[in-house]
Structures are given as C-alpha cells and as structure tokens.
Simulated assay, not measured.
Amino acid sequence: LFGGQIVGQALVAAARAVSHDEQVHSLHCYFVRAGDPKVPVLYEVERTRTGKSFSVRSVKAIQHGKPIFTCQVSFQLSQESPVQHQFTMPAAPPPEELLTQEELIQKFLQDPNLAERYRKHLNKIQAKDVPIEIKPVTPPDMFSREPQEPRQLLWVRARGYIGDTDMKVHCCVAAYISDYAFLGTALLPHRRYRPRFMVSLDHSMWFHAPFRADHWMLYECESPWAGGCRGLVQGRLWRRDGVLAVTCAQEGVIRVDQPPTQSKL
C-alpha cells in the first residue's frame, strides 16, 4: 500500500469527525506494520479532544485486526493574527516550460542504445497509474551513479479537476502528493548504492494557507541527514504566487546493497 494513500484516507476519516468550519492545521503519523493491498482498510477515529479553538482526532488504520498506521490530526477554527512571516519561495522556471515525468521517460525510451534492463525499469514506471502530474525542475540522469546534493524541486498537482470545494478535501489530496518520491531525496548523494528496502516510518504535515491541490505547486524537498539505515527528508509546498501552503517532514528506513568490490588483480 502506498503510504500517501493511507495518510490521505486517514485525514478524510478524521475530517468527517469535526465541524465544517474547522480546518486541519497539522497531522503526525506512524506506519507501524506493512499494509496488505488485497484487503480493505478500516479507519477507526477517536474524538480525543474538542476545544473552543482546536480539536484533536486520533485515527487508527486496521487490517487483519491489527493497526498498520496511527495518526493524530489537529483542527483549528480560523483566527487572525498580526504575527506572520514565511521563507521566500525558491526560484524555478514555470511548469509550462518543463517536461512531465512521463515525457522525460519517453525520451529515454527512444534512445536505441538504452540497455534492456533500464528499458524494463522505465516501462515498469510508465505502467503505474499515478494520479499526480509531476514536472521535475532539474531532472536527474536516471542511470547516473554520480552523487548529487540531497535537494530537488518538482512542480506537482493532482490529475483532473477538484474545484473550489472544502479546503479539507485539498489537504487530503496534498497528503497523498506529499509522500510521492519524497524519501528518495535522501538517496541522491548515494546513487552508487542500489536501494534494497525503502519504507516510511513516520510522516508529519503542517498546513499554513489555502491552496488548490489540482493547481501547480512547487514541491521543495531536501534531506538534512541520513544514517543508521534511516533518512530524514523535509519538504515545502509553494503556491505559484509565492505563498507557503504546506510543510512536510518524514523519516524512513533505507537499506541498500553494497556495490561490488573491484578485483585488484
């Protein structure tokens, strides 16, 4: 099961247990067991606290009678404050000038000299039905083993039309989007290693300003640290007008195969 799907569905369940006027401002999740794609997921919501300004809902995702995921979601009634600031959005070319991930893969596949194992890998990616449009700002060479800075910029949006609906719906979709290719940022400096096992341990999000998940947003991802078979990634989703809409953080397990040692003979 895709982690972003579980986070998004858990947020849907939590949102149904608060009033229409309360909007999500943060969520904190743990992935505690592997999910089974063959059986439905049961979401159990506890009304942990309902206050005058803030409400907390606890969500458990259950399969085979055991929790696979736990989450705490906090909601807030709108409040004005003179205390406001944010970082500056990084410079990036507009999405209209960039190729989608699918178009980039198609360019690779047109290369007659592409090795068959790489061709199979790209066709496997192409076959996945991903409900997100992605346009990398500086797409990495998929087959290079050269280390890169643990940073990437992506334009992202949901496929199809969602419209001006309840903001909680857009937050649920953004939860799905936020987990896509996120942990991979931590592997960019270590491209000589082949990942053997990579899975999310936890995921947190903070929602700052209204946005449309079906409009282009710039996803700024960076990894400040990796070690002990774990990697930490942080992300910011920016609206096109420069407003910081969402901040994300995630830690995951990263296990890699050691590269073969070259013979000195």
Rank of each mutant, 00 (worst) to 15 (best):
L1E: 07
F2L: 03
G3F: 03
G8A: 11
G8P: 03
A10N: 06
A14E: 11
A14I: 10
R16Y: 11
R16M: 14
R16S: 14
A17R: 14
V18K: 05
V18H: 09
S26Q: 10
L27D: 10
H28V: 01
A34C: 06
V39A: 12
L42T: 14
Y43G: 07
E44C: 06
V45H: 06
V45K: 04
E46S: 13
R47N: 13
T48H: 13
T50C: 07
T50G: 10
F54G: 02
S58C: 11
K60M: 09
G65R: 04
I68T: 07
F69E: 02
F69V: 01
V73C: 12
L77S: 10
E80D: 15
V83L: 14
V83M: 09
Q84T: 14
Q84C: 11
H85L: 10
F87R: 09
P90S: 10
A91F: 06
A91K: 13
P94F: 03
E96D: 15
E97S: 15
E97A: 15
E97N: 12
E103G: 04
Q106C: 06
K107R: 15
F108V: 10
F108P: 00
D111I: 03
P112Y: 05
N113I: 00
L114V: 04
L114Q: 04
R117H: 15
Y118G: 04
L122N: 09
N123C: 09
I125H: 01
K128W: 04
P131Y: 05
I134S: 09
P136C: 07
V137S: 05
V137G: 06
T138C: 05
P140R: 08
D141F: 05
D141C: 08
S144G: 08
R145S: 13
R145H: 12
E146F: 01
E146S: 12
Q148C: 09
E149D: 15
P150S: 09
P150N: 05
R151A: 08
R151V: 14
L153G: 07
R159V: 03
G160M: 02
Y161Q: 10
D164F: 00
D166V: 01
M167I: 14
K168V: 04
A175M: 02
A175S: 14
S178I: 01
Y180G: 00
F182S: 00
L183R: 00
G184A: 13
T185M: 02
A186K: 01
H190F: 14
R192N: 13
Y193C: 04
R194K: 12
P195H: 04
R196E: 12
R196F: 06
V199K: 00
H203Q: 06
S204Q: 12
A209E: 15
A209S: 15
A209N: 14
W216S: 05
E220W: 01
E220N: 08
E222S: 12
P224H: 06
W225E: 09
A226Y: 00
G231D: 05
L232T: 10
L232N: 02
V233T: 15
Q234M: 13
R236T: 11
W238F: 12
W238I: 10
D241T: 09
D241E: 13
V246A: 05
G252K: 01
I254C: 07
R255T: 01
D257C: 05
D257I: 07
T261F: 03
